[in-house]
Design a protein around this nucleic acid. Structure first.
Lengths: 353, 353
DNA sequence: GATGTAAATGGTATCGATACCATCATGGAG
DNA sequence: CTCCATGATGGTATCGATACCATTTACATC
């Protein structure tokens, strides 16, 4: 990868043409038409607008399709109709369930509407997002789902030029490119801080992953504490994505460093789970000796012991809403709401007893 | 969903054409050509085979591209060249890291080679796989990545007709459609059984998810035990995907049912983690009172307490190998290996101490 | 100086489907 | 009986790029 601005055009494909000359599935609309004894357009209509074709032709066309095993070529259709029935989803990663669930919900819902999802993984780096965005846009998706609201100037420009519905997710912004669906991570952090204060915790620590949104939660948490006069908060940063392993390490590091917190806020649940385990291994009682709060309400969180207090938000709903708003916009009846705050809830469980 | 055989053709799109008449990004190859003062084909060559174009033209073409913000239309290119640079990946789900990691690895590697991944989620149901397969094939992917080796007759036929590289993953088979990458789940189960016997466990139980591969592991486990004369094995089935919650429930159910196992094999790690937690909550020592073994070596498994003995296999490698073999085949130099056994390793940790 | 070869570029047909407009029955209104 | 709306179907151009073949120029060879 060159350090320079990535060229707008993809690197030249290096692979040869596929060897088999004619594709085995050379069955086209025309073949079906011939067999059914009608014209190609009629076959096209039989498929896409069955109600304008007579029952009789419909039957014979369907039979011909069946017989030939015809599979329409969406590339060709999309070229002429400028509808690819493709929605691109660009997320940092699907290795943790964080984004995977949203993508899954998005895919499920779009699939029912006859759209497919093109997956792009940006890996938390903006430069890579740009590259993937270019690649993806050349497939002329009908809409695009992005993570976050920070995009390069080039990216914004390309998205605008594409003239398609764009959903920015996980975050909120007053100026979405098109639509934003998310919630305030800073407020989520503040909510955690408030909870800690209400519980009377005194020696507070934070373990945070280092991606932008985790840091926003951390900042919200610290700000709220600062506003109530507390600035003596121990902090450990870990890699993104935050994992159980990193959580253990970070807590161990805190404790070994002489810090004796009575509570720790972890900016993502796996970190919190790790912290709990590390505490338990060291013979500390959670929440008696150390209260732990996470973020994200992962599927394991209610079921570990002690169950994990966390901040919950509906990941699947982000994907579903995105799909709904995209479909509405594609359907010509865009929702007037451009920014959707899906909110979050603080779920108090045993770990902050 | 009708109970009948899904029609080969997708349901008619119900959404209107997008409202904006002309796409804002109406910049085509021709526009670039005009500005650069060359013909369209030369621009095409400048992009795809830069080495056959003179340095001079290359420069002016690149400038024109930059200036106009040209984004190539891969739909059109793909139509003529019958290369979509698209690889379809159909997996049951990406909500758990099980398949997500393989898809992620596949996507990463293909992305570097200039391919994009089209994601299909089949949700463990074969009927849905068929429907998604049809939808996906109409996009003319250059290759396809599937989960499992069980596909309907229609699916096989369509895949064969498509004439593209097909990777079946997670499982092995002597008769792959094209390429299979996986390992023997039955043997994995056997390995677990063998380990239990070596450790001298006596009252053995199994908690299994109910998807096909989990059941194969369970069966391998039970068969091996049966072959050594043990048939008194308590068994609990849970939903797929197996989760921590289900693991707790299943173990609770076993213990409440009067079964007193000294060891339990869980066919997927999250179930095992759940079992450990349930045991601990009940005051049982793991592994002293109850040994637990999982499967999959999830990222949390080495770091929980006690650390989880499990059967490890390289999920990312499946995706990477798939990408490599696909690229090799597309590049005209297919690997002679049609079936790749990536194997597995039993990792002994504290939970079967 | 004639000829051959490679490099650089252009022209045209074409991929497979759909948009758009035209055509042709059919049948009810006047 | 004519007229025209309606329904069903076909013809043709076209989407944007690339394959294929042709052409032009430069330059080395004999």
């Amino acid at each position: 990868m060159d350090g320079q601005m990535a060229p707008q055009i993809l690197p030249p494909p290096q692979h040869q043409r596929r060897k088999r000359g004619k594709d085995a599935s050379a069955v086209t609309l025309k073949d079906v038409a011939r067999l059914a004894g009608v014209s190609a357009i009629t076959v096209s209509r039989a498929i896409n607008q069955p109600d304008v074709v007579s029952e009789e032709t419909l039957t014979s066309v369907r039979k011909a399709i069946e017989q030939l095993g015809y599979v329409p070529n969406l590339l060709a259709g999309g070229l002429k109709s400028s509808q690819s029935r493709l929605v691109a989803a660009i997320v940092p990663s699907i290795g943790t369930s964080m984004f995977a669930e949203a993508v899954e919900a998005l895919t499920d819902r779009l699939s029912d509407a006859g759209y497919e999802v093109l997956l792009g993984l940006s890996g938390f780096a903006q430069s890579r997002e740009d590259r993937i965005l270019s690649a993806v846009l050349s497939r002329k998706p009908d809409a695009i789902f992005l993570t976050g609201i920070d995009h390069s100037a080039r990216a914004r420009q390309q998205l605008l030029a594409a003239g398609i519905p764009v959903v920015e997710s996980w975050d909120l912004t007053p100026n979405p490119i098109d639509i934003a669906i998310g919630f305030s991570h800073e407020n989520a952090g503040r909510a955690a801080a408030k909870h800690f204060l209400e519980k009377g915790y005194d020696r507070i620590a934070v373990i945070s992953a280092s991606d932008k949104r985790a840091l926003q939660r951390r900042d919200g948490f610290l700000k709220h504490l600062a506003e109530t006069g507390r600035t003596d908060v121990a902090l450990r940063l870990t890699e993104t994505p935050g994992s159980l392993e990193r959580g253990r390490e970070a807590l161990a590091d805190l404790l070994n460093g002489g810090v004796q917190p009575d509570s720790v806020f972890c900016t993502v649940d796996p970190l919190a789970q790790g912290a709990i385990i590390e505490a338990q291994v060291r013979g500390l009682d959670v929440p008696g000796d150390l209260a732990v709060m996470g973020f994200g309400n992962f599927s394991f969180s209610p079921h570990i012991h002690p169950s994990l207090s966390t901040i919950s938000f509906d990941r699947r709903k982000i994907g579903e809403l995105a799909a709904d708003l995209i479909l509405a916009e594609l359907g010509g009846t865009p929702s007037p709401e451009r920014v959707v705050d899906i909110g979050f809830t603080l779920v108090e469980r045993q770990s902050t007893g």
